[in-house]
């Protein structure tokens, strides 16, 4: 990967995309898995293979995006990101939770900050990745992050900090499928999204709006879409959870239908794929 970094963007990303597609032929288990996953879509013959290979190639692209391969400055990143639905966030006069998913390109919180949205990211140790060169330094220093992992100091304390941030009017970005207790699952073609409960607890504790965020690649541009907020919390927790589940399921099903090739996490994440 390091050898690809000096190449002008997006050469490194293109090479990784091709390498990941080629890797599927070298490691037949990967290819079988991808083709089996593609079989959950109403496709036959070549189309099914095309989807499987496109998914592998997108996996390579996403690895490149995560590493910010060839993206030397935050400004470089900003040029490749389009943000839609920002009005939904600005309409929220209080703190807000932006709820992301492991679908599409990674590094959404970094991209959001690059386009000027002051989000505080909360999640696993390595998910908020920036570069260490001089142009990224001010960006990194200005980025407030809440690291959550079993080895991180006091995950309960981190959630407490997140709650304070929300009550003080901050915006928190958290992946719905991160760590912690499972709230519910959303069945998608060839797998399911395991939705965790941290964001749900914070939503009920703070009464702040939760805005789902989905992202996809359109060519080489990363499009990030902020959706309207989930309905306000219902007094009955079980009912509230069901309302959230239905709303998120509709969004995720729509995403999986429109961008199946970008659902690599459903294909390759351990334990994600369910036999049909």
């Amino acid at each position: 990967m390091r050898a690809l970094d000096p190449l002008p963007w997006p050469w490194g990303e293109e090479i990784l995309a091709k390498l990941f597609a080629a890797k599927a032929f070298i490691r037949p288990r990967l290819l079988r898995k991808a083709v089996a996953w593609a079989g959950h879509y109403p496709l036959a013959g070549r189309s099914r293979w095309r989807l499987a290979l496109s998914c592998c190639a997108h996996h390579g692209r996403f690895v490149a995006r995560q590493a910010l391969l060839g993206i030397r400055t935050p400004e470089d990143l900003r040029r490749h990101v389009i943000l839609k639905g920002e009005a939904h966030l600005t309409a929220a006069s209080t703190g807000a939770i932006l709820l992301g998913f492991h679908l599409g390109p990674p590094g959404v919180a970094v991209a959001l900050r690059a386009v000027g949205l002051p989000v505080t990211w909360m999640g696993g140790l390595r998910a908020f990745r920036t570069r260490w060169n001089a142009p990224w330094q001010p960006f990194r220093q200005a980025s407030d992050t809440l690291t959550l992992s079993r080895s991180a100091p006091s995950p309960g304390g981190v959630l407490y900090r997140a709650r304070r941030l929300l009550l003080d009017g901050g915006t928190l970005y958290v992946a719905a499928e991160g760590g912690g207790r499972e709230a519910f699952r959303v069945a998608l073609p060839g797998g399911f999204a395991r939705i965790r409960s941290g964001w749900f607890v914070l939503r009920r504790q703070c009464g702040v709006p939760v805005l789902p965020v989905l992202t996809h690649l359109e060519g080489l541009t990363q499009v990030i879409t902020i959706y309207p907020p989930l309905p306000p919390p219902h007094p009955d927790q079980a009912r509230d959870l069901e309302v959230c589940r239905l709303r998120l399921a509709a969004l995720l099903e729509d995403y999986a239908r429109r961008f199946p090739e970008q659902c690599y996490a459903l294909t390759f994440r351990a334990g994600a794929t369910q036999p049909s």
């Binding site: 309960g156 407490y160 709650r163 760590g179 912690g180 941290g198 504790q205």
Partner: peptide, 12 residues
């Protein structure tokens, strides 16, 4: 075996 959400509940 409290997880982060449980610990938050205890703190609050």
């Amino acid at each position: 075996w409290l997880d982060s959400v449980d610990v938050l509940e205890v703190i609050l």
